Simulated assay, not measured.
Amino acid sequence: MSANAFLHKGFSVGKASLISILSGLPPLFVVILAFLFWNETLTTQQLIGFIVIFAGLYTIRYSNDISFSNLQGAQWGLLVALFFAFNDLLGKQSTRLEADTFATLTLMFGCGSLLFVANWLIKRNDVIEDKNDTRPRWSDLKTFSIGLLIGLSNVAGMTAILSAFAIGTTGLVSAIAAMNVLIILLYSRIFLKESFSRQEVLGLTATLIGILILRLSQ
């Protein structure tokens, strides 16, 4: 929840491309911290696969319009990366302690849901009082329905990630989970008819090669 809050703050004050790049760093932090905490190491082939996947994801996220003179919001992007990394590490720790998956997910999403509902109610009252705000607003039913659909998809994703953490290497699971950007790209290509840039094609190719390397290392 904290990572998503920092992500929202970063996008509101900084360049989306910069925040996107920094928010792609969690797998790197996870590999380093998993080594420090649990002495988890990668084989040579796994390390090569991780580097290729990470390079591919980073190529996809990279944008040429970023310069050292335009780094507003960088601190929020780094906090996003750290807290997403902590989320992966705590998920791994729950599997190491053999915690019940249902109880873990209930506490994880229940606490976050209560805080987000409180925040939504506060902002909703502010919007009602602001008569000059002409932006379109969703109905309460639509807000709840869309939020429920998104929440269920997150629960399904976290269930899969926890299952992967229980049997896999933390850094590799984190890197593969970060490949959701590929699904977004494919969606934009197939349904929105958007074309891929050269960087996105290179990133996709590198990521697929990395997956193949990991597969061959099994």
Rank of each mutant, 00 (worst) to 15 (best):
V31K: 02
S163I: 00
I167E: 10
H8F: 14
I211S: 10
A160V: 12
K92V: 06
R215K: 07
A74F: 15
R61C: 00
L182A: 04
S113C: 14
S69K: 14
S12N: 09
L202H: 03
S163Q: 12
L141W: 15
S217H: 06
V181H: 05
F191L: 12
L172T: 04
D133L: 08
L57H: 01
V155R: 07
K142F: 09
K131M: 11
N64V: 09
L186Q: 02
M158G: 11
W138T: 06
Q218Y: 11
G210N: 01
S12Y: 05
P26N: 06
L172W: 02
L182R: 03
G91M: 05
T44K: 10
G112M: 06
V201Y: 02
S2N: 03
S63D: 15
A34C: 06
T104H: 05
L182T: 03
W138P: 01
S94H: 01
M158H: 14
K131D: 13
L121A: 10
L25T: 08
L114M: 14
L105E: 03
K131P: 07
V80A: 03
T169R: 12
A206N: 00
I190S: 07
A99M: 15
M1F: 13
N4G: 05
L71I: 11
M158V: 09
T143L: 12
L105W: 01
L57F: 02
K142I: 00
I51D: 02
F165W: 08
S17A: 14
A81I: 00
F165A: 07
W38F: 13
N4E: 09
L79A: 14
H8K: 05
Y187F: 10
D65G: 04
I161C: 08
V117N: 06
L186K: 00
F102I: 07
D100N: 15
F102E: 10
L25M: 15
D130P: 01
G151V: 07
I213E: 03
A99I: 11
L148T: 15
V31M: 13
K131I: 09
L214I: 00
N87T: 14
K123V: 12
M108R: 11
N119Q: 12
A85N: 02
G210D: 03
N180D: 13
L162A: 07
G110K: 09
G171N: 06
F116R: 12
D140N: 14
L186F: 12
I161T: 14
G171D: 05
L114F: 12
R96S: 11
I21M: 15
A16I: 10
